[in-house]
Write a protein that binds this DNA or RNA. Structure first.
Lengths: 102, 102
DNA sequence: ACCATATTTCTAGAGGTCTCGAATTAATGG
DNA sequence: CCATTAATTCGAGACCTCTAGAAATATGGT
C-alpha cells in the first residue's frame, strides 16, 4: 500500500454513508451483499448509493461482481489490512522504550 | 468510538498532507514532535500545516501541548486503536465459516 | 414484444476543503 | 524595549464532494 492509495482509501471511508456501507459489508463477510440489500438496510437513495459504491470500488475498498441484474459488493479485506498496517507502520520507532507501545 | 467520530477521523486521515503528518508522528511515538520539526521534515507551509494540525486535534487524532513558544503534537494512540477496532467490528459475522477471516 | 426489477448515469445546486501569503499573537533573549 | 523565533488566524480563489430526482441501461420473466 503506497501513500496515495492509503489516503484515497481513508478519504472514502471518511464519509458517513460510505463508512456505514463498508461496515455493513465487513459484517456481511466474503459473500458481500447486493446493492439492493444495502439500500434496504441503510435507506440511502439509489443514485446516491451507486455513486458511493463506485467511489469505493475505484479505490479497491470493495469489489463488485455482476450476476445478471444484481451487483454484489464485497469488501477487499486484504486492502483493509494493508491500510491498517500502513497506519501503524514503524509505530513508536522514536520511543526510547519498546516499540508499538500504542 | 461512535460512527460519527470514526468518520470524522477517517476524513482527516484521508488527506495527503495530514496522513504524512500523522504517520510521522506515529513514528515519533509518545514524545511526538513540534510543529517546527514537522514542518522541517515535510516541507509544508506553516499556515497550511497549522490548519491541518488544528483539524487533526479537533477530532482527537492527535493532541497538542504548548511549552512556551513551541507546540508539541502527539498522536492519540488509543483513539487510533479504537478507530481500527471500529472498522473491523463484527468482521465476517455473516460468514458460514470462522469469523475474522480477513 | 412488453413490463418489472436492478442499477447506473446525468445533472445541477449547495456547501465544504485546500492552499498559502500576509497579518497577528505570544514568548524569549539581549 | 526591540528583535527574533514559533505558531496561529485571516482572507480569498480554485476545486471537489454530496445529494437526489430524472432519465437511461440492462436483464429476466411471461
Amino acid at each position: 500500500m503506497d501513500h496515495e492509495q492509503a489516503a484515497d482509501s481513508l478519504t472514502e471511508l471518511g464519509n458517513t454513508h460510505r463508512l456505514a456501507v463498508f461496515r455493513f459489508l465487513v459484517r456481511a463477510g466474503h459473500e458481500g451483499a447486493s446493492v439492493g440489500e444495502i439500500q434496504k438496510e441503510l435507506g440511502i437513495p439509489a443514485s446516491t448509493l451507486s455513486h458511493h459504491l463506485a467511489r469505493m470500488t475505484k479505490v479497491r475498498l470493495i469489489r463488485q461482481e455482476k450476476h445478471s441484474r444484481t451487483t454484489i459488493c464485497i469488501p477487499e479485506f486484504q486492502n483493509l489490512e494493508r491500510l491498517i498496517d500502513f497506519l501503524m507502520e514503524e509505530c513508536c520507532a522514536g520511543d526510547a522504550e519498546g516499540k508499538d507501545a500504542a
